[in-house]
Nucleic acid binder design. Structure first.
Lengths: 318, 318
DNA sequence: TAATATTATGTAACCGGTTACATTACAATA
DNA sequence: TATTGTAATGTAACCGGTTACATAATATTA
């Protein structure tokens, strides 16, 4: 069933049918009624592909997600979708791109070949093809002033982590992923500043993404008698530290305080429950989508959006 | 940059360029080299939309996901993507469809309008439009013999749950979502069969999706002195029960045994760690994608795929 | 060398929409 | 009534690919 079939059935031209479908141009009420009735009866739905070909607008947004199995990104997607779907947009998603540049380029090319209207992407390589279409980045570095970046308030997140364990007397252990990751850099810098301001000493311990949770927990507790508190990478790492601490008969927060990150489901299920920082990923996603839609409609500034974090005080800190 | 531009630059016809791009028909080596060089130099990529319009094959698969924030579905997506992406397919995903039939229909219509090549969907309403395109279902009822269904071995999952707590002397409490959900029905039926076979008594307790975790935990432990074991809905519910049990000074598995489902990250982080059943969602996703590709290529039978489960024995059972 | 088969290339229609422009119908005005 | 303006509708080109069919070039065979 095509627009020409409808036109024939209604004894009008394709232009008239198109006008009715799109509510554009002048059409008499009589004709509109007649055509709409036939559209209804035949359950006709215009083909989006044909539309896209001519208009170069696909009503599709390309989304790049580094890791599919990470709940943080799932929540971001949830936020994105909650804005895009009511606006009539569909999501073309490339998962598990990780930091694989080849996969990244393949995903972008695929988007471009499908006349995508815009891209929401995490960390990302510059490419002249991309810059021509609306782009919003999340969870990545501040690459250039021309590119909108949606990021959690990592500085505040770091500062609030320190506040949670501010009663520490001895040194604080900071576990972190490589500082080459911009979000990590921001957070750790802020943690250090706040510790210094409070005249607390600290030790940095860099963790590789390839280290097992178990190993990271062992590293955390190896010299635990030296420390009063651990600020670790996120809730999962924190939960593994708690597990090992239990085995070692260490009490939290009596022997040491512990701070996670992300406020995942498990952070309120551990014993003790975890103090943590909520990045509000749904809000990150929503904001990214809103900014992108504004950009597509040509009415957006290029300033970045910083998403507020929420401090969640629970039992693992004093 | 279009195929006509390339043809002009290379002094050949569009047909020749098309043949070269698609490796179809006869082309002399000389011409092929000349054209490929220009394609390379201009970084030309054929437009997928135009292709799709003519061929009615979009190289896109529509995926319906009920809940974006559920890690179980994230893992299924991961599995799907790991098969589809190397095969050159892109995923058009509708998240958070839940059991909202309106959203469901909208998603399907959107897929059809985009000339999608196939659909991977969870629970789903019949619709004459859909049946015309390749479809694979997961996590849903066995609607009809014509539709391929990929499902976890719920019967085995139920049976293994019982085996985990088989030392129980008193009754077993079974918490479950409404039996109108086909997967729930299968599992609970199997649990009951296995309990009967072992001459164990039991109580069924139906839980609503809208009940809070806290409430469900309270319901679970309300008459706990009556029970020796609880088989609950999944790991999250189980973890909440553990949390409340701790508060009530109940020991697990000494006072009662507890079985979760899904083998989520948190199941090895609780104290005690949770015995659970792994549905292997990545495998479900992979299988669904493979079956769909076979169906698209017209070389698939309509028989269902049952995905094996893995029993994970941990500390919450004896 | 002419006839024929084979290979290489080109032309134009097609996919199913949108829209610039042309045309027709009808109402308003002189 | 003739003229002009406006509303309604129609025609055909266009988007950027693919492919059936036609034609040209070259190789093979008699």
């Amino acid at each position: 069933m095509t627009i020409r079939d409808i036109a024939k059935l209604a004894n009008v031209s394709v232009a008239t049918v198109s006008r009715i479908i799109n509510n554009s141009g002048k059409v008499s009420d009589k004709t509109r009624l007649k055509v709409n009735k036939i559209i209804e009866e035949t359950n006709y739905h215009p083909n989006q592909v044909a539309r896209t070909l001519y208009q170069k607008r696909s009503k599709m947004i390309g989304i790049i997600i580094p890791f599919a199995e990470n709940i943080f990104y799932s929540r971001i997607i949830n936020g994105i979708q909650s804005v895009l779907q009511p606006a009539g947009y569909t999501c073309l998603i490339s998962f598990s791109v990780g930091s694989n540049n080849k996969k990244y380029q393949a995903a972008i090319n695929n988007f471009l070949q499908n006349n995508i209207d815009g891209i929401i992407s995490s960390a990302f390589e510059m490419n002249e093809n991309i810059c021509r279409i609306p782009l919003v980045m999340y969870d990545s570095a501040n690459i250039s002033d021309d590119i909108i970046r949606i990021a959690s308030d990592n500085a505040k997140g770091g500062k609030e982590s320190v506040k949670l364990i501010s009663t520490a007397k001895r040194a604080v252990l900071i576990q972190h992923l490589p500082l080459s990751l911009p979000t990590v850099k921001e957070r750790v810098t802020s943690i250090i500043n706040e510790l210094k301001k409070r005249h607390l000493t600290y030790t940095l311990q860099e963790i590789s993404e390839h280290d097992t949770y178990k190993l990271v927990a062992e590293k955390a507790l190896h010299n635990i008698q030296t420390y009063d508190a651990i600020i670790t990478i996120n809730d999962i790492y924190a939960a593994h530290i708690l597990k090992l601490a239990r085995k070692m008969n260490l009490r939290v927060p009596a022997d040491f305080q512990l701070v996670g990150y992300d406020n995942t489901e498990m952070s309120e299920l551990t014993s003790p429950t975890l103090s943590t920082i909520d990045q509000q990923p749904e809000l990150i996603g929503k904001t990214a989508a809103k900014r992108l839609l504004a950009l597509i409609d040509g009415k957006s500034s290029t300033e970045n959006s910083v998403i507020d974090i929420k401090t969640v005080k629970r039992e693992s800190t004093k």
